[in-house]
Structures are given as C-alpha cells and as structure tokens.
C-alpha cells in the first residue's frame, strides 16, 4: 500500500524502517535500485561535481505499441497528479516485447547528517 502524500520540502532520504517496509516488496515487484552513471551524467551535460543519484527503476513490457503508448499517457497523468517530473527511456525489449523503463528519484532530497566518526 502506498504511503500518504509527502508534505514539505526537501524530502529526506528513506529511513531504515521505511526501507525495510517499502523497498523489499518493491523488489519483489521487479523494481530495482540503480545509480546514475558517469556516462548518463555526461549525456545530460551536467557538471562533474554533480552528485551521483541513486534511483528506483523498473522496466515495463507491453504486448503492442498501442498499449505501450496508452501506458505512457497514464504515466504522464500520474506525474501531473503527483507533481513528479517524468523521465523514461523507451525502445527497449523485455522478454521480446516492447518495453519502457521508468527511473524514479528525488533530485533535491535531504541527505541525513553523517555520524561524526563515520567514513
């Protein structure tokens, strides 16, 4: 079940408890965590000082292009409702079918303070 809408800004990173509660079920639903690569950063033309982002990502497969584009429309509407920037990459294949990959992250999230004796 989805958590209620988040209020306030910036939003903090997931806590350990939130991670345990939400991320493990998401992994079971084929979501994965991945990290933005230097190649992607260069492709976006951002600075080398740009912080590396960890994001949630999932690839969705569709039987045909009609259902694929219908899904993109649904994603667009959800993005507007949730005030989420939408990014996606298409043209991929999953199990021999049309696939769309959706990365999800918060670009200006609040990182917790490191412990003073932490590395």
């Amino acid at each position: 079940e989805a958590p209620p809408p988040v209020k306030g800004w910036p939003t903090p990173w997931l806590t350990q408890d939130e991670f345990n509660h939400y991320m493990l079920p998401l992994y079971e639903h084929n979501w994965r965590t991945t990290i933005e690569t230097q190649k992607q950063i260069q492709a976006e033309g951002t600075q080398s000082t740009h912080a590396l982002g960890t994001f949630l990502e999932k690839t969705f497969a569709f039987d045909d292009s009609r259902s694929c584009f219908a899904a993109l429309q649904s994603i667009h509407e959800l993005c507007e409702k949730e005030k989420h920037h939408c990014e996606w990459t298409g043209g991929g294949r999953l199990d021999g079918k049309n696939a769309v990959t959706i990365p999800v992250c918060t670009h200006t999230a609040m990182r917790p303070e490191w412990p003073e004796d932490g590395s």
Partner: peptide
C-alpha cells in the same frame, strides 16, 4: 543535511501508484 539526489517516500509512493496504474496495461 545537503540536498542531493536520493530515494524518498515521495518516490516510493510514486512507484507503488505506478504499479497500480499500469497493472491492467502491462503484458
């Protein structure tokens, strides 16, 4: 703390809603 990219409850909510939204559309 510094504002940097990361995974937040906002993203988790979006991912779960996305799964629910696309449940009938994926193959």
């Amino acid at each position: 703390g510094r504002k940097v990219p990361g995974i937040t409850l906002r993203d988790v909510r979006f991912a779960i809603l996305l799964d629910q939204t696309l449940a009938c559309q994926v193959s």
